[in-house]
Each structure stands twice: as C-alpha cells, then as structure tokens.
C-alpha cells in the first residue's frame, strides 16, 4: 500500500523534478556555454518565461479538462487565430467608433464569446453525432482555419491600440498581465476539476464511461461544457497575446494543438482519459518553455529544440508507463 502511494507521488511530481533538473542543468552548463553575461535563473528572465508560457498554458489548462473527460480538441489553434482577428478587427468597426477606449472590453467580450461558441459547436457535434472528438475537431481545425483565410486572405489583420498595449505590458507585483491571466485560469479550472460536480463527473466519464452512464450521469452535456470552456480559453489566450502584439497573421496558432497536447501529456494526463491534473499540466507547460529558453540560452537553434522536446516526450512517457505498469501488477496480488 505504502509503495503504491510513493509511486503515485513520484509519478505526479515527476514533471516538477524534471523542471528542477532543467533549471540546474541550464544554469551550470549555461555558465560555460552562454553567449550572454546574465545568469539563466535571472529574475527578469524567469518572469519573462512565465509570460511566454501563458498563450500555450491557458489553452493547455482547458485541454486537460477535455482530455480528462476522454476527448481531444485539435481545433484550438484555429480558434486562437479567429479570436485574435475578431479582437483586433472589431476595434475599428464603425458601430463602436463612439466608444473611445471603452471599445476594448467590448472587443474582448466579442472575441471570448466567439471562442466559446466555436468550442460549443465542436461539443454539440461530438455529443449529437457520437463521432469521435478527434475526427470532429480535425474537421473543425481545417474548417475554422478556412474561415481565418476567408477573412483577409494571406494578409495580416492589425490594429494597435496603445491603451491596450500598455495594459498587456503592465506588471503587477512583478508579474506580467499574461502571467496573471494564466494564474487565474489555472486557479479557476483547478477549482472546477477538484471541487465541482461537473469536474467530478468529467473524471468519472473519462475513467469509465459505462459506469458513469450506469450512475445516471448524462455524458453529452458535460462534454458540451468542456468544449465550451476550451473554446473560451483558446480565445482568452488569443486576447491576452494579441492585445500586446496587435497583429494576427493568418497562420498564427498553427501547431498550437500539438504543443498544447504535448504539455498536457508531459504533465501526466492520460490520452485515454480519466486521469490528469491541472497542476501537472502547468508543470508540463513550464517544462517545455524552460527547455526552449534554456536550449536557446546555451546556443542551440530551433530545430535542435524541437528534436530535444520530441525525445524527452517519449522518454518521459516511457518512464511513466514503467511506473504505472508495475503499480498495476501490484494491485492484482
């Protein structure tokens, strides 16, 4: 019994051990190899890292909920781009011209609503057709991306509002606006998974759908809620990011779904559903960002970074599998 608990703790904190390892490694190796003078674990560097984790991180939190529920959402990158376009374009609409800077909350609300609706559409299709979420969101990934290109062709959509940029670049208690949004998202969704009926049922459905149905749980509505949440969060991620950058390229957000899923899986969530935690996902997000930044710091180029992340993903999951298989055997005795 005891060793099972030890293993469970080991497997849930594995990602944090890995993060500590990364920090030490890059600090030590960096002191020999780095081209810059500043230390890797410099405060401003770390604060920047948290800020840069936000776009993927906010979506990954939603993806955890989706994957715990036993689904997957490949359309998040496209929803991200659509929400960005709506945010920036709506600020210049004639109807809002009298609002002054009050256009900002209106545009935010529009973008977030659009994201939630696109997510809900995914959820509704998964629920009502019974088609696998992988297929449904593969379709909507292509379809939503099509909408992005229909809007402005290959051209970027730009709108710089300096009030908005100031807000996005602000630091409160040292942390950037984006970091605060990430923190709030983590907190709220963590509360949902941990303490609400919806969170409880989402785990139950992902863990054993048949038993959940036999307990009278209606599977469809829970899926719809989760897809709405992830749509909303993909839009939130876009809103936070584009408030600062002010320009959406129609290719933006591509491959986000894969980075997000990588982070979630690194954080210990099972692809099969029913197991995973928001805090683990946060660890996965930070680990990837650290790796990117760290490898850059010691002079590796982007292609090396991708190769390293790919390898690490497989190694981590292999270790996880070893731990879990051994645990399962012990239970049988």
């Amino acid at each position: 019994m005891n060793s099972i608990n030890v293993k469970r703790h080991l497997s849930s904190s594995a990602i944090w051990i890995f993060i500590v390892f990364e920090l030490i490694f890059f600090s030590v190796v960096g002191s020999f190899l780095s081209i810059t003078d500043s230390a890797f674990m410099d405060t401003s560097n770390m604060l920047l890292l948290l800020k840069q984790s936000a776009p993927i991180g906010i979506i990954a939190v939603g993806m955890t909920l989706i994957m715990v529920n036993g689904n997957i959402d490949l359309s998040v990158g496209a929803v991200f781009a659509i929400a960005g376009i709506i945010l920036l374009d709506s600020m210049s609409w004639a109807v809002f011209s009298g609002l002054g800077d009050w256009v900002i909350p209106v545009s935010w609300a529009l973008a977030l609503t659009a994201g939630a609706l696109l997510g809900a559409l995914n959820g509704l299709i998964v629920w009502k057709t019974g088609v696998d979420a992988f297929i449904v969101t593969l379709g909507s990934m292509l379809g939503y991306r099509g909408l992005v290109f229909m809007f402005n062709g290959e051209n970027p959509t730009s709108n710089l509002n300096w009030t908005l940029v100031d807000f996005a670049e602000a630091q409160f208690l040292g942390f950037h606006t984006a970091t605060w949004f990430l923190a709030m998202t983590v907190l709220v969704v963590w509360l949902i998974t941990r303490y609400t009926v919806h969170g409880r049922n989402a785990y139950a459905i992902g863990n054993n759908r048949e038993a959940a149905v036999n307990a009278g749980i209606r599977v469809g509505p829970h899926m719809l809620i989760n897809f709405t949440i992830i749509g909303f969060l993909a839009a939130l991620s876009a809103v936070v990011f584009y408030s600062e950058s002010g320009s959406v390229n129609p290719n933006d957000g591509q491959l986000y779904e894969l980075w997000v899923i990588t982070a979630v899986v690194l954080g210990g969530t099972k692809l099969a559903g029913g197991s995973g935690s928001i805090i683990g996902t946060l660890g996965g997000v930070l680990a990837i960002q650290l790796l990117r930044k760290g490898l850059g710091y010691i002079g590796a180029d982007t292609s090396t970074v991708n190769l390293a992340i790919g390898l690490i993903l497989i190694v981590v999951l292999y270790i996880d599998r070893q731990i879990n298989v051994k645990g399962a055997q012990e239970l049988k005795v």
Binding site: R200, Y203, A204, N207, N208, E210, A211, A212, N214, A215, I217, G274, S275
Partner: peptide, 16 residues
Amino acid sequence: SQGLVLGMNCRDNMTL
C-alpha cells in the same frame, strides 16, 4: 467495467 470508476476513491464512487 460497468459499476465502478476504478480510478476514483471509495467515497466518490459511492456518491457518484
């Protein structure tokens, strides 16, 4: 396979 959510604890299963 039909009655319990094996990954959840005793209490959560009972109150499901």
